Amino acid sequence: MTGIDVLTEEEWRAREAVHTRRMRAWTEPHRQRRSRGEKHPVLDFLFTYYSFPPARLQRWQPGPAVVLAGPGARRFLDRPGYRETADGVLLDTSAFSDRLARTARYTLSLLEAVHGRQARVDCFGLHEWAMVYRTTPEQVRHAQVPLRLGHSGTDAVVESLNVRCGHFDAFRFFTPEARPLNRFTPTRESQRELDQPGCLHVGMDLYKHAYKLDPFVPSELLGDCFALAADIRELDMRASPYDLSDYGYSPVPIETAEGRAAYARAQAEFARRARPLRERLITLCRSLLTLQGGHSSC
């Protein structure tokens, strides 16, 4: 990794404040809901399925090759991986461990494969429907939320449309009865071959790929990936079989031709938004792998 940026204390404190304020728009309501024992079927996913702690999400990190100048930067020395130099405080490249290198190498391989593909926008969010196909009320994932079409109506939609989910981390939650209806049988081993940029979960997972590189991911990139994941999650659940009107969400009724068209348009827009974030993550992984003599593909 070449080139070192030096940020004055005024500069890095300003960036820190912007990131913290931005992330608190999500983390603070989540904290308040938890204190009240409330569950949110849309937003909790960002903090439960994605396991990065809210406190770490809102904690600013400069990323590699950035020196934080000024006396206030010494507090970063209380965090793992930082060291002091004559110019200030920065991440120590020796803290880029073998584990992080393996993560970066796997992530890079997956991101490069996805990046070279055309987005496919014909799945219509049926993965959420397949997760409740032929279930009883007690088996529904979000049992506190009613199904818009009821159980029989939900089952009929799954049976009338072609289920085309290629993402393993969605497919693994399908009910046993729904799995044979899917065009694909994704596995963890086939993820590199099946993931594609139009998939909502592939877009959301950019956030996961980013936080798994912490603290070597700049918080601005992490925050951008989280914000995209939050927007995608909203569409994901609006297009689901759940009635979320009590939470202020109007449905995207994919059981209709108009709803499927609206879903496909939104899906294509998210694929467009995800592309530059994926490029930034690819560039970061390539740069990080130079720290241990890595290379840009597996």
Score class of each variant (00 low, 15 high):
His127Phe: 06
Arg105His: 11
Ala119Lys: 00
Ala104Leu: 00
Asp87His: 11
Arg75Met: 13
Leu110Cys: 05
Asp92Thr: 05
Tyr133Glu: 00
Asp87Asn: 08
His142Met: 11
Ala86Trp: 11
Val132Cys: 04
Arg99His: 07
Trp129Val: 07
Asp78Tyr: 05
Gly125Arg: 00
Ala69Cys: 12
Leu77Phe: 05
Asp98Trp: 04
Asp122Cys: 02
Ala69Glu: 15
Val114Pro: 03
Ala130Glu: 01
Leu77Ala: 08
Ala69Trp: 11
Phe124Asp: 05
Val121Met: 02
Glu84His: 12
Ala143Met: 10
Ala69His: 13
Ala143Ile: 12
Val66Pro: 01
Ala65Gly: 13
Cys123Glu: 04
Arg120Ile: 15
Thr135Ala: 08
Tyr82Met: 09
Asp92Val: 03
Ala104Gly: 02
Gly81Glu: 01
Phe76Glu: 00
Arg120Cys: 14
Glu128Ser: 10
Ala65Ile: 09
Arg120Thr: 15
Arg83Val: 13
Cys123Pro: 04
Val140Thr: 14
Trp129Lys: 09
Leu90Gln: 00
Ala73His: 01
Asp122Trp: 02
Val89Lys: 04
Gln139Val: 11
Leu90Trp: 04
Arg83Pro: 08
Arg105Phe: 01
Ala86Phe: 11
Glu138Cys: 11
Thr135Gly: 06
His142Glu: 15
Val114Arg: 05
Cys123Leu: 00
Pro137His: 05
Phe124Leu: 05
Glu138Asn: 12
Arg74Gly: 09
Thr136Asn: 11
Phe124Pro: 03
Gly70Lys: 09
Arg105Tyr: 03
Arg74Ala: 14
Gly125Lys: 04
His127Met: 10
Leu111Thr: 02
Tyr106Met: 13
Val89Leu: 11
Gln144Met: 13
Ala65Pro: 06
Ser97Trp: 02
Val121Trp: 00
Val132Ala: 01
Glu138Gln: 15
Ala130Phe: 00
Trp129Ala: 10
Gly72Ala: 14
Val140Gln: 09
Thr93Ile: 04
Glu128Gly: 03
Pro80Asp: 14
Leu91Gly: 00
Phe96Ser: 04
Gln144His: 13
Leu90Pro: 02
Arg75Phe: 10
Thr107Arg: 00
Ala101Lys: 02
His142Gly: 07
Arg120Phe: 14
Glu128His: 08
Pro137Arg: 07
Val114Asp: 03
Phe124Lys: 02
His115Thr: 10
Arg79Gln: 12
Thr93Lys: 03
Ala113Met: 02
Arg99Ser: 04
Pro137Val: 08
Ala101Gln: 00
Ala73Leu: 06
Tyr82Arg: 05
